[in-house]
Design a protein around this nucleic acid. Structure first.
Lengths: 211, 211, 211, 211
DNA sequence: GGCTAAGCGAGACGGTACGTCGAGTCTTGGT
DNA sequence: ACCAAGACTCGACGTACCGTCTCGCTTAGCC
């Protein structure tokens, strides 16, 4: 999950890798992201902060991007979807959580950078998808299920179509928040979130009606 | 428009800058983006491709990021909004255009990278906003006006609220397409675009109704 | 004789060191010297060739230089001084033997390197002197004794002066051969050796006459 | 003579190399040799002492060995052969000069090291020969000529044989001094030098008589 | 015949230097 | 003032070795 697997080698032999080093490196990486941002973060600096040799980093991660993905990924697991009684309230709550996450300097600087790198680095894209993106689709799924139980959305007819709608909602919500926060550089505040969720709830009703 | 203005010097004195160099550099930058991607593009390489000295680049642009923004910005002016008879058709058309633009390797690799850099570089953010982002808001504005003329959307009541909705739509559309294309790395094809525009049109109706 | 003695431990307790490892390491060291030369020889590589862990090397030798000295020292014990009937013939024979030894790639690359290191490493200098240099002075001593028995050289008068001459001859012969072979990089062939021994025999006569 | 020649490039274009940097680097190299010795001298340290970037070193010298040869070579040009009235006195004087040179820490540590490296590096051997070795043969030549003028040695008969004797003397003198100073690590003092030159003068007489 | 003290293979560890590369600046001579 | 060329400083890169340090396991001699 978090480090380069030891190539062609029995796990029973030799000195085992230090798990303290693992943790210290990831923590140091987040710290460096906060202070320096992605483009000024260096492997040597991270090693220094972690109290670890540079070789120890390279033994675990092939390069800066993979390290940063792992350091940041864990933050995304904080997102939760408590039942607030209505689809619109649920959406607003998770969008605000996501916006708060994107406001943190370590994610703000890192997320776009690694996605940019991933356009030319297939393994990195896979790592991002596995560590970050796919893990959050659970939120969309859970939100839809709950809305269906409440009767806010009709029950599934065609499971393929449902999947497609889930993916659409995921890209729309995540994309809109990222774009608002990082490209437009405007605040993701309650009024905006209210408008966004109104748009979504309204749109979902229309799409579900004749979908 | 596209290059660093000559600091503290009268524009009338000495040898004028070569306009051929300007064009050659931007073209060379796009070429290098296609072949190498953003992170492996180097100023020396661009200078070499353009048949120009590195000095000449730095006389015009302060650094690599600003050069890349200018090289890519012009591509976004290709987007157009022909009248296709309905709001949904207009949206689908412009989204497909935008998706095609993001498929081009020079924009795919560059756009996210410079946005990532801009999270720590205020002048760069301003340049991106001025050169790329704000320029495309015209499309949202034009689309809405046309829909209002057709009667698909109600006429403006509160101009402030209208602006807010325009901005929301812009972030949702641009964000969703970028996220689908670069993060989810799934095709922005006609079925997906149809679903997106259905969602938007439905949602806009709902929002406008009680907005 | 050849390896670091076990510090602060009774030699009777615990598992004894493998003598096969000793031999394999020295042999591997010579092999690596032949293939890689002194400066590209690495401890890890030697350990690998010997089928032994790096720890096992460092348990026996403090560092690369001491290992190399021991690996090479044994080769110098091959030198012999058979009685060929005259001082000049004896000298020529031993010089040719020495030259052949210096032609071997493992000695050629190692000898000068460890001597160079020894200019800044007193323990190493001692080890070289004990393992290599002093051991070969026996040849000079034996040659002189034999020449005196034959009447080619006068009998000893002052033992201190005799020692001084022995040392001089040693430095002249060894130095000249090394310089010819490694610095001038010219062949130590029979004509050259004949000239050298003629010079020495003539010179010794003169020095002994009024010494 | 002292730096890597600029490959495939007109000398008329671009910023010229700094000659101050050249001098500062060589001086810094000698200083570092004195303080650290050859094996602990690093390119980065030399660059720092010279107030120069590491790249500036690598632009001029391919590696540490070539740099050290150039830094040390100039010291050997100090050797001179004043006329002291007799062959023996001339020899003693130049040998003492040479010994003093070898006592200097920068030559002591560097000379053997680069010769050791040169056994596996043909270009380095050539550089040493051209910069250091061949330049000093002039001393042997001059000494012999002067001795012939004085009548201490017979005039040339066979020029080839004369060359061979010159080379022999060079290897014997240089080799003996180096061996005494660095291998035997004993002082090259006046008594020893007197014995050496007596040996040589006596031997030369004998060799020249029937050579 | 179990105990104990070392040896052993494996490989991770903290360091240090390597030689290269790119960014952005400066210095030539020439337009 | 511009320009091409290329040297300059700075700093990070990713690699390679050094010599040390755990691991789990083996191999003797002694009780």
């Amino acid at each position: 999950m978090c480090s380069r697997t030891n190539p062609r080698h029995s796990p029973r032999t030799g000195r085992p890798r230090s798990t303290e080093a693992d943790a210290a490196i990831l923590e140091a990486t987040r710290e460096a992201l906060v202070e320096l941002g992605w483009s000024k973060l260096t492997m040597g600096d991270v090693a220094g902060r972690a109290g670890v040799a540079k070789t120890t980093l390279y033994r675990r991660w092939a390069n800066k991007n993979e390290l940063v993905v792992d350091a940041v990924a864990v933050l995304f697991d904080e997102l939760e979807l408590p039942d607030l009684g209505s689809l619109q309230a649920d959406i607003e709550h998770v969008v605000l959580q996501f916006a708060a996450l994107l406001e943190r300097p370590e994610t703000k600087t890192a997320l776009m950078a690694v996605v940019a790198e991933s356009t030319r680095d297939e393994p990195l894209r896979e790592r991002i998808r596995a560590s970050i993106v796919d893990r959050q689709k659970r939120l969309v799924l859970a939100g839809r299920k709950r809305a269906q139980q409440r009767g806010e959305l009709p029950a599934d007819r065609d499971p393929v179509a449902v999947d497609a709608i889930d993916d659409l909602i995921f890209d729309v919500v995540a994309g809109a928040v990222v774009h608002r926060a990082l490209v437009s550089a405007e605040p993701v505040d309650e009024p905006w979130v209210a408008r966004l969720s109104a748009l979504l709830v309204g749109g979902l009703g229309a799409v579900a009606a004749h979908g």
